[in-house]
Design a protein around this nucleic acid. Structure first.
Lengths: 211, 211
DNA sequence: GATCAAGTGGTCATGATGTCCACTTAGGAC
DNA sequence: GTCCTAAGTGGACATCATGACCACTTGATC
């Protein structure tokens, strides 16, 4: 599962922005209490476990609370719904990919031709989907894919590549291309194909579109 | 309330195939009872109304039963869940498009080059999404898009076009292209673009891929 | 009109949701 | 070391959807 139960960097870094508001209120020490940090970790571990086994979209707040050994109100205090828990778990991994897109080495980062970079982005997306697809599916309960902040980032990135290649209407066309890496679609394809095969097909799409 | 309790043409045409099974069982008269037909129509009307107003995925069996003025058990007798009601409502329209793909006039039907036919299919899909997108979204509660029988049809069709154009791995690549007409994605794009604009972008995709 | 089964709707047990409130406890102040 | 305060916690509650069960009603056939 997740490693390092004692790595308090995850506890120290607020997962939701509303923590910052709370920090501002206290006089001196807005620090997170030890028991709160412990329970937060329990919740995240239990949620990871639940998401990974079975249908991620069928996981309920009640199940997570029970598995983590905390009351439901404790859960609702920090996370309004299941999707936000999945988002918290995804945060690090998505930001990592975003960093590599912005200033990593080519072909993922700047420096390679657009077609190469798009293909590399697709490949990285397959990695993300393969490792954390269950989290991405868990997040898509209700408001869905396009409400998440990460989507906008992928969209801007792909649109920039299209624009760089001289394609008109980069924004909407980026949406169309991102449809190819929809978590639900990936799950569907994954029943028949290996990640490498899916990557190869996405590679074809990237090069065909940015000929 | 609803009009025309005597309009039995809608009552006579079975919406789901399972009616045929019931017809075959009785000795002489497997006919649907008049009150059953009336209630069926009420349910379908009420469901259409509910799906169209507000979030189609938030509609519950309870709401439909109440709006239709029937008990919940009456609803469950014919439809196991909300998705199956949406499927029943979509049936005719999807079959109509399927017919036009198989034996309609070009460029939708046979006779035109693959790129043209793919573009025409995308355009027809936009029409379907525009008129009945709320039903398509309503169907995607839980088991989702790929469980519906219609998806396989679109997949086979697009794969055949790819194969005709000499593309390898037609099946999986058809999946990728169909990601561009995902109902959820369409809804998202529709907040910024007109159907005509979306069609134009899909046209670009079709011609770029089947260059 | 009598009969029978299909059709109908109320009821029940179950489980999830989100909120509220009284209690506990961590961590700084003195 | 003890006291205090507020953050943190968890049980309880009201609400709602689910899906199944069962007794009653009604339509179609004889």
């Amino acid at each position: 599962m997740m490693n390092a139960p004692d790595s308090d960097d995850t506890a120290r870094r607020p997962v939701r922005a509303d923590r910052d508001d709370l920090l501002g209120s206290g006089s001196a020490p807005g620090r997170e209490r030890a028991d709160a940090a412990r329970n937060r970790q329990r919740v995240l571990d239990a949620a990871t476990e639940l998401f990974a086994s079975g249908d991620p979209r069928a996981v309920t707040m009640e199940q997570i609370a029970r598995a983590a050994g905390v009351g439901r109100a404790t859960l609702y205090r920090r996370y309004p719904d299941v999707a936000s828990i999945a988002t918290a778990l995804l945060d690090d991994h998505e930001r990592d990919l975003q960093q590599r897109l912005l200033c990593g080495r080519p072909p993922l980062g700047p420096g390679a031709p657009p077609a190469e970079r798009l293909a590399a982005f697709f490949a990285a997306m397959v990695d993300l989907l393969e490792c954390f697809g269950f989290l991405l599916l868990a997040r898509e309960t209700g408001p869905a894919r396009y409400a998440a902040g990460a989507y906008d980032f992928w969209r801007v990135h792909v649109a920039a590549l299209l624009r760089e290649a001289g394609v008109d209407g980069a924004g909407p066309r980026a949406d169309l291309l991102l449809g190819a890496v929809d978590p639900e679609l990936y799950r569907h394809q994954r029943t028949r194909l290996t990640p490498a095969q899916i990557t190869a097909h996405l590679d074809w799409l990237a090069r065909e579109v940015l000929a």
